[in-house]
Design a protein around this nucleic acid. Structure first.
Length: 296
DNA sequence: TCGAGTGTTATCCC
DNA sequence: GGGGATAACACTCG
């Protein structure tokens, strides 16, 4: 499911449920479900969050993490196909269920489902947030300290260590294509292939334009377009956990937002009517209007 | 049968 | 060392 708006939808759906819940057990059902764990093992029945009470549900970019009444965080990364569900009944277990968390108080379990297993859970120490966000009590999990603040954090002025203007300049200091820069989570996080295409279409910028050839104005237009599209997607993403549970896989419910470029190759551009093109790019696809988005 | 798919990162190379 | 490019991870669907 996962670019920033989809991950934020998951976070916001978990946020009313999880605080005050106490972890009774964590069952890892697939070897890759914890593979990037750099902290204590989640598989151990004595791991430090067993018995812990959840405090908060946080997100930066495409990463979610839970904090506890102890100095560890549980990272949830959805990868390409991950879902988090709180099923009402265990009857319809997904064949792609990779992990489940049981709570001492409350009948519902948390299920982590992931067809392609690019997602994972990880238990991590909390360290000081290098970007000094006004959120998260100044702490983030150790293994995501290299992930840049996400676009909404920057544009809302929540991070002290990176202003909108600094992000703009950082983007324009890069020599590679603008779409590569947008997808680099160490520059700005949360943007993936779909929203990159949508933002570039909206700002009328060709994805292969070298970032250092863009003007400050153009980059501003791009960042504002991305923020607008993502905010709209978050608003549209208000599907409930229960509804998601009825869906077959992580792709369902993902394209509720009206898209102008992504996946629309061969269809007319909604601005000028020229047919949307698809280009091969970084082992994936770029979608663009060849008339609106001239290569710069 | 083959290619393509929403993400991240290890590992090359320059 | 750093930045950049590429491959690899795994599974399903059209």
């Amino acid at each position: 499911m996962p670019e920033l708006p989809e991950v934020e939808t998951v976070r916001s759906e978990l946020a009313p449920w999880l605080p005050k819940k106490k972890v009774a057990a964590i069952r890892i059902l697939h070897p890759r479900a914890t593979r990037r764990n750099t902290g204590p093992s989640l598989r151990s029945a004595k791991n430090p969050i067993i018995g812990g009470e959840i405090n908060s549900v946080n997100r930066r970019g495409k990463f979610i993490w839970l904090t506890f009444d102890r100095p560890y965080a549980l990272i949830i990364h959805l990868g390409m196909s991950g879902q988090v569900l709180l099923p009402k009944s265990p009857a319809a277990l997904s064949p792609h269920l990779r992990a489940r968390i049981e709570f001492t108080n409350g009948k519902r379990e948390l299920h982590f489902i992931d067809q392609r297993t690019f997602g994972y859970l990880a238990l991590e120490e909390l360290v000081e947030d290098p970007f000094a966000s006004a959120e998260f009590d100044g702490q983030i999990p150790r293994s995501i300290t290299h992930i840049a603040p996400d676009l909404l954090e920057v544009l809302n002025g929540k991070v002290l260590a990176r202003s909108h203007k600094e992000l703009n300049a950082m983007i324009r200091s890069r020599k590679s294509e603008i779409k590569r820069v947008l997808l680099n989570q160490e520059v700005v996080s949360g943007v993936g292939n779909i929203y990159a295409d949508e933002g570039l279409w909206s700002a009328k910028i060709h994805p292969e334009t070298r970032a250092h050839h863009l003007t400050e104005r153009e980059v501003d237009r791009l960042l504002n377009a991305l923020a607008t599209i993502m905010a709209r997607a978050i608003e549209a993403g208000g599907t409930s956990i229960d509804e998601q549970y009825k869906r077959v896989n992580g792709e369902s419910g993902y394209f509720d937002v009206e898209l102008d470029a992504y996946g629309r190759d061969g269809e007319p551009c909604s601005r000028c009517g020229t047919l949307i093109q698809r280009l091969r790019f970084m082992n994936r696809s770029s979608h663009l209007c060849p008339k609106c988005q001239k290569k710069g």
